[in-house]
Computed example of a mutant assay.
Amino acid sequence: MATTRIEAGFYFLYFSFFPMLLSASGSYPQAQNVTWKSTNFKTVLVWEPKPSADYSYTVELSPVGGNAQRITNCIRSSQTMCDLSTAMTDPKACYVADVLSQPPQGATSELSEFPHKTSPKFCPYDDTELDRPKFTLEVSEGSATLNVTDSPTAIANGHHLQTLRDIFSERLHYRVTYWKNKSTGKKTSNYNTSMIKVTGLDHGESYCFQVQAYIPSRTYGKQLGDLSAPQCSKDENQTIIEVYSPAVIISAIILILLLTGIIITVTVVCCKRKKKAANGEKKGVV
């Protein structure tokens, strides 16, 4: 009889409070698809889904083996992204982030622990993607000089944004891909400086160049950055058709014909006036 009463009491508690707990946890759904997006140490955490008006998200960042800190701009937020660039003070450390599902701003909850989703581990020094660099091009006989600008990052040193060279130092290389203009055959060379001289080029030929950041010490697949926009040298042997587009050439021909027609018209009119004036003088003399 006592056992029956205990079972009845258990079922009463279970069916009375379990729906409440289910409802409370269901009102704060766990974040999903938590991923990192990072380029030149500009690092953003993104996730799904966008919250309803009944809940929000809070982000906590932790160095692996260290203490967690709440990110000021990402506390009880309705956004599904959080910029963690400035919070990652050590680019060589590895981090994890927790996305907590909480009540919205101004609301309270009796829950002591909230649903959360932990991100994969992220190591900025090894994992951030490298953006396409910019460079200037100067060409002389048989060689080309490329002056590459070391891209700025989102990591500041005082009031100064550090460059990729500041962070990677001698580990930062550049890979140059080049080819003869209008040719499909390409060559690549690696350089450990930002001032690059490519030699062995054919004199008078036009060459095109692209540059990308290259970190040989990284794991394969993360060593190379995005390719820059191509730049080509001038071809000293180009014909006028190769230099200018057909539209420009046709426009120039039409302009020349118009000018020629105007000159001929003006010349003919002037000659007729002179002839008419001369005939008038002759009649006056007679």
Rank of each mutant, 00 (worst) to 15 (best):
81 M>S: 09
282 K>L: 14
92 K>T: 12
57 Y>W: 12
196 I>W: 00
239 T>A: 02
279 N>H: 10
28 Y>G: 03
233 S>K: 11
28 Y>A: 00
180 K>M: 07
219 T>P: 08
3 T>F: 03
14 Y>I: 09
35 T>E: 13
34 V>C: 03
57 Y>D: 01
134 K>Q: 11
257 L>V: 15
113 E>I: 06
127 D>L: 00
45 L>R: 00
37 K>A: 08
286 V>Q: 11
15 F>W: 14
82 C>F: 00
63 P>M: 02
78 S>L: 08
30 Q>C: 11
181 N>F: 12
30 Q>V: 14
152 P>R: 04
56 S>Y: 08
5 R>T: 02
106 G>H: 02
18 F>R: 05
64 V>I: 13
254 I>D: 09
42 K>G: 01
239 T>D: 01
230 P>A: 08
177 T>I: 05
54 D>M: 08
214 Y>K: 09
118 T>A: 07
254 I>C: 13
44 V>L: 01
152 P>E: 09
252 A>G: 04
60 E>C: 03
80 T>L: 06
195 M>S: 15
144 A>Q: 02
285 V>G: 11
250 I>P: 05
67 N>H: 11
148 V>N: 00
41 F>G: 03
75 I>N: 10
171 R>C: 09
197 K>E: 10
282 K>A: 10
176 V>G: 04
37 K>Q: 10
192 N>G: 12
123 C>Y: 05
194 S>E: 06
33 N>M: 10
24 A>F: 05
102 Q>E: 14
134 K>S: 13
6 I>D: 03
76 R>M: 05
197 K>A: 13
279 N>T: 03
27 S>K: 08
109 S>Q: 05
194 S>W: 00
22 L>K: 15
285 V>T: 11
151 S>V: 06
131 D>I: 05
87 A>P: 02
132 R>N: 10
244 Y>M: 10
131 D>A: 15
138 E>S: 13
275 K>M: 02
67 N>A: 15
222 K>A: 09
152 P>T: 07
221 G>A: 11
267 T>D: 13
184 T>P: 00
164 L>Q: 00
80 T>D: 05
285 V>S: 10
3 T>C: 08
136 T>Q: 07
96 V>N: 01
